[in-house]
């Protein structure tokens, strides 16, 4: 089933709007039991999905698939995926650890996605935008050539059509298995964001758990307005590496969205059920001087 079909049938009850069972997870997963990573509460898969993967007991924000994320963000039925077929190759024939070719094949099989980001056109609160969401299940939503290409194309399309960009981001960083080609995606994506910015167009980033490494240090932190989910880890170097290399004692809320807010690095911590409405408000403001474009 093409990924775009996931978004066609969608139940529309709100407060923790429900997402279609097929949106990135199988019926079986909906029927399965899940344990909250926050408080340990056991919940039925359907209950979890209906609650936007937020624990009803402790409000812990659990990981969402890219499909579930898009569904939670856009106006029902408006998402049209673009560049859905793009996927990384194995340019270095990288075999250290699990061979990269196997990792890619496994991630595709497991997620039903071709890469770690979904991108498309949609409306949010009626406002047209280029919208994307990353999927941590796909090799830690790391950025290789294809993720970089999809992000760059998203900003280029948005620039051409004079649209804002809204990205829900999660990532472990650059995809090591593509070596320097993945490091350079940081410069490539940042260059595309810079052009979109210079064209007077708006960009909203929603940072979700975890947003780290080379993705944080490129397109994720170049937005006009940056939101983050409660408890999301947002940072460059991971806590384990910092502890290993500096033997510094890490503050309790180190790299949490709340701490990054207090340090002035993001604009707001927004709970998941309120994100779509907040983005809709922002899109009312992030309009270029000429009024911008619209989704055909």
């Amino acid at each position: 089933m093409p990924v775009r079909d996931w978004f066609k049938a969608r139940d529309d009850r709100r407060r923790y709007a429900p997402v279609n069972a097929a949106q990135g997870r199988s019926e079986a997963a909906r029927g399965a039991w899940h344990k909250c990573d926050g408080c340990g509460r056991i919940m039925y898969g359907g209950e979890r999905a209906d609650n936007l993967c937020v624990c009803p007991q402790c409000e812990h924000h659990m990981a969402m698939s890219a499909g579930e994320r898009i569904a939670s963000l856009v106006d029902p039925g408006t998402f049209q995926e673009i560049d859905e077929g793009l996927t990384s190759r194995d340019p270095l024939q990288f075999t250290a650890g699990t061979p990269y070719a196997e990792k890619l094949a496994g991630a595709r099989e497991r997620t039903g996605l071709n890469e770690a980001i979904l991108v498309g056109k949609a409306t949010i609160g009626g406002a047209p935008a280029i919208v994307g969401a990353m999927d941590f299940r796909f090799i830690g939503a790391s950025m290789g050539s294809a993720v970089g290409e999809k992000v760059a194309r998203a900003f280029e399309l948005a620039t051409a059509e004079r649209l804002p960009v809204v990205l829900a981001i999660a990532s472990g960083g650059a995809r090591m298995q593509e070596g320097m080609l993945s490091l350079m995606q940081m410069a490539k994506t940042s260059a595309a964001v810079a052009r979109h910015d210079a064209a007077g167009l708006g960009y909203v980033a929603v940072l979700t758990h975890p947003t780290t490494g080379g993705v944080t240090a490129s397109f994720a932190t170049l937005a006009d307005v940056t939101l983050a989910e409660p408890g999301a880890r947002v940072g460059f170097t991971g806590p384990r590496i910092i502890e290993q290399t500096t033997s510094e004692k890490l503050p309790k809320d180190f790299q949490s969205a709340e701490s990054m807010l207090a340090h002035g690095m993001i604009d707001e911590v927004v709970s998941r059920d309120a994100i779509a409405a907040r983005v809709a408000s922002l899109l009312r403001y992030l309009v270029p001087r000429d009024g911008g474009g619209s989704v055909a």
């Binding site: 940081m186 410069a187 940042s190 260059a191 964001v193 810079a194 910015d197 944080t216 240090a217 490129s218 397109f219 994720a220 932190t221 170049l222 947002v234 940072g235 460059f236 170097t237 910092i242 180190f254 790299q255 701490s259 340090h263 002035g264 690095m265």
Partner: peptide, 14 residues
């Protein structure tokens, strides 16, 4: 991290 290492890098890239 608290002073925005990631932001400092991305701004240089842009």
């Amino acid at each position: 991290e608290e002073r925005g290492q990631a932001w400092a890098i991305s701004e240089c890239l842009a």
